[in-house]
Design a protein around this nucleic acid. Structure first.
Lengths: 163, 163
DNA sequence: CTTTTTAGTTAAGTATACTTAACCATAAAT
DNA sequence: ATTTATGGTTAAGTATACTTAACTAAAAAG
């Protein structure tokens, strides 16, 4: 397998998948009545679990004040709960409420549904093949994710713009 | 291959990939100085090619006025060009300029870079396997995309919320 | 103990996205 | 030819996200 044919396969897939999932999330967020920034915070909490306000501001590259305000709206609407960290009384522990968790889960289910439709177009053998491949990718992705955050950020933000 | 193990594989992958790519796009859009809505319009044009203002408003579920205003900002900043449709003098044809195309391409390259890092963690055999699998998925996705828009929207927006 | 740093909030102001309503020009329908 | 529908813009106003600056409280450092 040449590098370039692998690269090509991955790029075609990303083009289709990224566009689709971005659009889907956007419309879903809109249907919930939440703004995209607010929705993204819920997603973040779903994915990474409990964190503080400043984790949010770092994650989305906004000021602490902005994060605090967004969080406050979500707290007021009972999507997340904000508790004092017992180990550091300055800090807050943010977590999804059941309401918030349910909402995100709903969005994820909707996204899955598209994939299920895709799956319906594959034979059983093809599904097995795809399944194995995705497991490989997921494993690699999680390994990568476990690495130093700084390096990840560089990749995410696009080093070519910052260099 | 059972349905559920396939489903599990696809869901794990989606969780990792969607979160990563959404975050990546968000930060990239921010680094360009464009707002997310404006950026999304560029993405849309990149993916679907030439379209009119009302296509934008439908696509993002915003008013015609809102779409027109967003488009105007992008035109003023030379990211897209707005020309009269020769076949219908009411309509406009929107297209990316070179500047716009370059910008989006840059973002896509940055996203690819993450995948290339993933690829670096796979053996050559694994890459081949992944490559084939992704081609299967891409093909299926494109078939699905070619189908009636209404049905797609239903899936995208999440039928459970609207039912 | 005092000083400094860290985590978070609040207030005031700006920017952007979005809405509705009124509008123009063209195309399609009658 | 007149009417109606379509594609798009403009204007005015509202909502949200975001900023900086000033602040509180607690932790860490000296």
């Amino acid at each position: 397998m040449t590098k370039s044919s692998f690269t090509q396969a991955i790029r075609s897939w990303m083009d289709v998948f990224m566009h689709r999932s971005m659009r889907g999330w956007g419309l879903f967020a809109k249907s919930t009545g939440l703004s995209m920034p607010q929705f993204s915070i819920l997603m973040q909490l779903h994915h990474k679990g409990s964190c503080g306000v400043s984790d949010i501001s770092e994650r989305f590259d906004i000021s602490n004040a902005a994060a605090s305000q967004l969080v406050d709206k979500l707290v007021q609407n009972r999507f997340i709960k904000r508790e004092e960290d017992p180990h550091d009384r300055r800090a807050k522990l943010l977590n999804l409420t059941d309401k918030g968790r349910t909402l995100i889960q709903q969005g994820i289910e909707d996204r899955y549904r598209w994939m299920d439709e895709l799956a319906g177009r594959l034979t059983s053998e093809e599904r097995a093949q795809v399944s194995e491949a995705l497991n490989l990718m997921t494993r690699a992705a999680k390994e990568l994710e476990a690495e130093p955050e700084q390096q990840l950020n560089k990749v995410l933000q696009g080093s070519t713009l910052n260099s």
